[in-house]
Design a protein around this nucleic acid. Structure first.
Lengths: 342, 342
DNA sequence: AGTGGCATCCAAAGCGCTTTCAATTATGTA
DNA sequence: TACATAATTGAAAGCGCTTTGGATGCCACT
């Protein structure tokens, strides 16, 4: 069933039927009713590809999903997608997801953009000096970046959380509790948020004349295994750190296993603060020792970015170009006063 | 840059350029080279919407993502998507994801199918007597179902794991270890896999003349919190079960917390077997007491389903219509002999 | 020279929709 | 009653691609 058949059935022109369906005012209400009724009966749905071709819009947001045989799927990705979806479903938008090898992301994004399949782009996993940024700017297609790109002029539309502030605050809390030996369990070094979180820690420490030793920084994929390994490494250092900052509750999961295996007590021998993306799977309050966290909902960020993206496509703007969300610092039992020096 | 411009630039007709690009034989090799060269220089990419309209194919797989404000994002979904993507990227296929309220899935799937921007459909979260099945059958569009639908004639293309067999085997192992008091921590009651797993447990028990008491079955969303609650309930039963079968490692996470909080020892006071979808986040071998599991990789299933779907679209068939994968039973430390009766 | 076959290429139709421009009819006003 | 105006509808062009159904020229053969 297509427009032509439907209009013939109704004895109307395609023009009128199309207008009736798209809410144009210049069509008789009685006629519109008749059309709507026929749509219900026949189950007619406009062909999206044709709509897209005719209008240049198709109600879709494009994103690239990094994937490869060895590549670990990322819980954060799913959670973010849920947020995007929550908003998209309200506007009858859908997603076009292009899987791509992580090494091929720039090209994949470009292909997606000029495929004519999407109205707007969403971009995540930002890096320092991210090469996708200049490409996106040259594209004349709306986009919103989740995160920022350290070292690039901040003149692009983004939504980010204040990573530096979050880790600055967390570090200060630990300093106030008397800790002096710190370690940072970070995400992959090239990612923007990792850079900023590290800066936050360093600048808070610097205010007390402290520095973060290279041995006390780990950069790794955010999996519990990496958390375990990193923590094992920290624990065997001669001057064992007592305060750990951790980029994710996933890493914390492994880190805490290492702490337990070493026979140490979390919140007493070792204090730990993790960043919490509010993953439904990993609630910091449910850890055996509830976790002190810096918190910001990934899902909420997804909702908001979808709002901006869809709003821009529908010209429902204007939206702020840049948003920086503060995180919350939530104190639970995994932080405590620094243990007495031996 | 579109076909017309490109062909004018080359002094060729659109026909010839199109043929050159799509590998038709009736074009001079020299000409084809020239076209390919021009494509490289200009960065021309065909408009997918137009291709779709002209050919009826667009290299895309459609799927519905259940989502709603309160709806928890599902780790399994992300993992599965990663599998699909891994295969899709090899064939330059992409996904069209339609977010939909869980109550609206049938209609959403239908809209997606007749929207004309997908070539094939993938369907998951199957239920007993699933209403999507008759709809899909009426659609004349290729699809593959992940899972099955209990109570429906199995005459549709699916890939499923042998849920009944997995839980039958797991239960038998526990029986052999001398356990007699069983509990089942299952997924939502209406889901197909939950029905089959329960059947597996029941039939293994029946062989020994045992039954599964209603109090010893829980049906819940597969989150760690629900696991905690269910286990707390089991532990306070007068005849406390000593053998727990658990539908997911996520549930197990919470269940084990409850065991620990009750001061019981996993693998001694309580034996537990969980089904493991091989989520990168939750490795059963990394639990403080490594988990005995029935294992089947969700991601591998994604890869396989993508193969079948894409193969069908590209007419690279034939593929088996029905596949039932056996699971592995992997024994670790969370299972042990039944404790002595008091 | 005439014919068929082959290798190349092109014009134009068509995919299903939107939208411009124009036509027709109804409504109101002088 | 005549005419401007508004309300409704339609014909046809166009979005960018593929594909059908020829063209055209060149060659080998008879």
């Amino acid at each position: 069933m297509n427009l032509k058949q439907l209009s013939e059935m109704l004895g109307l022109s395609q023009t009128t039927v199309s207008r009736a369906l798209n809410g144009y005012p210049e069509v008789n209400e009685a006629t519109r009713e008749r059309v709507l009724q026929a749509v219900k009966e026949t189950g007619y749905r406009p062909n999206k590809a044709a709509q897209r071709l005719a209008t240049g819009k198709a109600g879709s947001i494009g994103l690239v999903m990094p994937t490869a045989p060895g590549h670990q799927s990322d819980v954060h990705f799913g959670e973010f997608l849920a947020g995007l979806g929550e908003e998209a479903v309200r506007h009858d938008f859908h997603f076009v997801i292009m899987p791509a090898d992580p090494d091929d992301e720039v090209a994949a994004l470009r292909r997606l953009a000029i495929s004519g399949n999407v109205d707007a782009l969403f971009v995540a996993y930002m890096r320092g000096h991210d090469p996708r940024l200049p490409m996106l700017k040259s594209l004349s297609m709306p986009y919103v970046v989740h995160g920022r790109s350290f070292g690039s002029e901040p003149d692009y539309p983004y939504l980010d959380i204040d990573n530096e502030g979050a880790f600055y605050d967390a570090t200060r809390l630990l300093l106030q509790l008397g800790h002096t030996r710190f370690a940072l369990m970070n995400g992959p070094m090239h990612l923007d948020f990792a850079i900023r979180r590290k800066n936050g820690v360093i600048s808070a420490l610097a205010e007390r004349g402290l520095a973060l030793h290279e041995d006390c920084i780990s950069h790794a994929l955010m999996t519990d295994e990496q958390g375990l390994l990193a923590m094992e490494h920290f624990l065997q250092l001669p001057a064992r750190p007592t305060a750990i900052l951790c980029a994710s509750t996933v890493l914390a999961l492994g880190a805490i296993r290492a702490v337990n295996q070493a026979g140490l007590r979390l919140g007493e021998d070792i204090s730990l603060i993790a960043h919490d993306d509010v993953l439904p799977l990993l609630k910091p309050e449910n850890f055996s020792v509830p976790l002190t966290t810096t918190r910001s909902s990934l899902r909420a960020a997804g909702v908001r970015i979808a709002q901006r993206l869809i709003g821009t496509v529908k010209q429902a703007g204007p939206f702020p170009e840049q948003e920086l969300w503060k995180t919350e610092l939530i104190v639970r039992a995994s932080t405590g006063p620094a243990p007495q020096q031996l």
